[in-house]
């Protein structure tokens, strides 16, 4: 009995050690970054104040708090903080001038980058510069306004759950369009009200939960996987049939990552949408169409013959 307990304990210990090693090795630069997270991962930070010769504790500016869990799940999780931020940040207290540092843009790293060629960053950059975000606002509007450098991760391509992708992507838009403080970083408008500006939209709640903002507000092109050319309000899709029809636009955007063979499953047009929802007009069924047409034709034919025979027999 003792022997068995020892074996179980040994296995448990081995598993614990292995899992700890696994956790450590899976997060690159976690050791280096932990120095930053010691302050920027918490609501308070402490330091030795030499002028008053004691340790003081201060509250961290909430906009400078980085969620380490989200950080190590995002696209750039393998980065060291100083890959993007100045090396001088390794010294504390930080030099005040560092606040003025120019942050890198996406193309600074991704231009001509073979590893990310499939995302076509150059085309995304061009689309973005043709979008209202770029043309109507100052250069303050950068990629980072939407793609939080400390938490953004690709979703549409990797997440099979389209509804989760919709929430994730829409929250990016809402992070400005439903947040007055962030919105006013680049706009003089007092309060964006997404609900009021969409009051014409039938079943507003359902639409908000089932499609992304960019479905109607961005120009879809073949070159870029996720549309970045946000259109002016006047150019937004308002014609319901753009999605509610056989050639639904949604299949070229939201559902483009679904396998093509799913698109006509069991005779349903645009079947790629069916596991997550149903779009009137887009998910009609080819077999039911044929069957209903045949039945309708037969009924009309029988009525026609019946009417003629009635007329003849009178």
């Amino acid at each position: 009995m003792k022997k068995h307990i020892l074996i179980v304990l040994f296995l448990a210990m081995a598993l614990l050690i292995f899992s700890q090693n696994e956790a450590k090795t899976s997060v690159k630069h976690s050791k280096e970054n932990s120095k930053c997270f010691a302050c920027h991962g918490a609501h308070t930070y402490s330091f030795q104040n030499d002028m008053i010769e004691r340790i003081v504790t201060k509250r961290m500016n909430p906009y400078f708090i980085i969620d380490s869990v989200l950080y190590y799940e995002q696209n750039h999780k393998s980065f060291e903080c100083i890959d993007c931020h100045s090396y001088d940040y390794t010294e504390f207290p930080h030099n005040n001038d560092l606040r003025m540092e120019q942050m890198p843009s996406c193309l600074d790293c991704h231009e001509g980058d073979d590893a990310t060629e499939r995302f076509n960053f150059e085309e995304i950059y061009e689309e973005f510069h043709e979008s209202v975000h770029s043309t109507k606002h100052s250069e303050e509007f950068t990629c980072w306004m939407c793609h939080n450098p400390h938490s953004y991760k690709i979703n549409a391509r990797t997440n099979e759950n389209v509804l989760e992708t919709i929430v994730y992507d829409n929250n990016i838009c809402l992070s400005c369009h439903a947040d007055v403080d962030k919105y006013q970083l680049i706009s003089d408008k007092e309060k964006p009200n997404v609900i009021d500006s969409h009051d014409w939209l039938p079943n507003q709640i359902t639409h908000f939960a089932r499609v992304r903002c960019i479905e109607c507000h961005a120009q879809i092109t073949d070159d870029v996987l996720v549309a970045h050319q946000i259109q002016p309000k006047s150019e937004a899709v308002k014609k319901c049939a753009e999605c509610h029809s056989k050639n639904a636009e949604l299949l070229a955007s939201l559902y483009q990552f679904r396998a093509k063979e799913n698109r006509s499953k069991y005779g349903f047009f645009n079947a790629a949408m069916l596991s997550d929802g149903y779009v009137i007009g887009a998910n009609r069924n080819v077999y039911l169409n044929i069957l209903s047409g045949v039945i309708f034709g037969l009924v009309v034919l029988v009525i026609f013959i019946h009417a003629i025979l009635r007329g003849v027999s009178k």
Binding site: W200, P202, K239, C240, A241, E242, H244, S245, K246, N247, I280, G281, R284
Partner: peptide, 19 residues
């Protein structure tokens, strides 16, 4: 009109049909 809606040919607008 809802079931067979089309961008190119609308007898009645989709949102009117819905209402």
């Amino acid at each position: 009109t809802l079931q067979y809606s089309s961008v190119d040919f609308e007898i009645i607008k989709f949102n009117y049909s819905i209402s």
